[in-house]
Design a protein around this nucleic acid. Structure first.
Lengths: 228, 228
DNA sequence: ATCTGCATAATTGTATACAATTATGCAATC
DNA sequence: GATTGCATAATTGTATACAATTATGCAGAT
């Protein structure tokens, strides 16, 4: 009577299609392919040692993830993201993260609260030591905890969708200046607001947290990777 | 030097895969398939007179549209939407429509503004006459105008995504009571706020518009179609 | 030199064959 | 009767062949 697993990831890591999907996604996000570059089915297939069928299916998924665009009978092209797109994404995400923090305040479990506290204190340690790799990992994890804690698969899905875009710019954001520790200080405030049950404050702080991340990114000129 | 068409719909209406995609989407949204019903590749293919290949690709798209869920090596199942999911969707959409109204206030063109006014006044006429079909059509169109007017392909994409879910509940909402004319009165207020350049008011009204639509839906018990 | 028309090549769209996995039914066992 | 094991069927996953569409290059006209 077990219902099918709702937590199932949309992409299967073990099928050929799943491997193609993950490989292409990583390559696009890491910048291996230029924007607007055309992806050929046979070329990708030969590179990975698979036929066109799984490649085509991976293409359909990447299209709806917003990473490529398929034009019928022509080809698949890596999507371009403009400066305005990035700004819009951060503004939308700011709203949604705020709502997520609000709902998390209302629904977080004891275990999730404990992991969130642990995350903040561990991140403080790594920030002091300058361990940017671990810090970035913990930063991602903090947000994932909040997504899970908000107890809404709809909102979680939306926010994780945005993550695909955000990853294209955010990966370098925590390395420079002291955004890393600054970010974690903001996490701590959000965490404390959630712990105190102050949903209004949590929402406001989460809003600002994303806005600040955006401001920091602009200040450091990470836009350069994107077309005007 | 023409760049590829960014406005291109994600699904091609003329390819076999496109036809399968649209057919299945309509059938799912219209309730032809029960929730959690399994969709078999061969059965769908035979019904539409096509092979499994275009069916499989349509499945991958429907999955990312959130209408079905594919479990590797098992099958494709129509997604279930719980009452909580519906509530979450409307709350998220309320936020995003508010942002959309704000941006529309800042970016709407003269032509779009005129179409929006025309939409409202035409809808008033049909509401008086009790033409619910046309009213529903105009209602959808009003929101599409606003999505286009906000001048953000990212936000537009998000809101249209939600539309897939919302269509499953909203289609009957305008038929009963006087929600139809009530909805249009709210459209008019939003339109006037946008025309007056009052972004704060437009945002607030758009927020409330979606909330009201949700409240109305709950009041009329449209939830019954969904699992607990 | 540029443009047009057409033959050819390259690429995507679809159908089908086969492999791998999962579901089903039934007999044997307890 | 319930359960296990296994043979069989049903279904999905992948590869490949062929069709349809689009891109390319070149000859000839202007």
């Amino acid at each position: 009577m077990a219902k099918f697993d709702v937590k199932q990831e949309v992409t299967d890591k073990f099928s050929l299609r799943g491997r193609v999907f993950h490989k292409l996604r990583d390559d696009i996000l890491s910048g291996k392919y230029a924007e607007h570059e055309e992806l050929k089915e046979v070329a990708i297939g030969e590179e990975l040692g698979v036929s066109r069928t799984p490649v085509r299916e991976a293409f359909r998924q990447l299209e709806l993830e917003g990473l490529i665009q398929i034009i019928p009978n022509k080809g698949a092209y890596v999507t371009g993201i403009t400066e305005k797109d990035v700004r819009d994404i951060y503004m939308i995400r700011s709203l949604l993260e705020g709502l997520c923090a609000r709902w998390a305040t209302e629904h977080i479990t004891k275990e999730q609260m404990e992991e969130m506290e642990e995350n903040v204190y561990l991140a403080k340690f790594h920030a002091d030591k300058g361990h940017w790799e671990q810090l970035a990992e913990l930063d991602n994890r903090f947000h994932d905890i909040m997504y899970e804690a908000c107890d809404s698969k709809m909102l979680e899905h939306q926010l994780k969708d945005f993550h695909q875009y955000v990853l294209r710019v955010r990966k370098k954001t925590l390395n420079n200046a002291n955004r890393g520790s600054k970010s974690n200080e903001e996490h701590e405030k959000i965490m404390l607001a959630i712990k105190a049950g102050d949903a209004d404050l949590a929402e406001k702080l989460a809003n600002e947290h994303i806005s600040n991340a955006y401001e920091n990114m602009v200040k450091n000129g990470l836009y350069e990777a994107y077309q005007k």
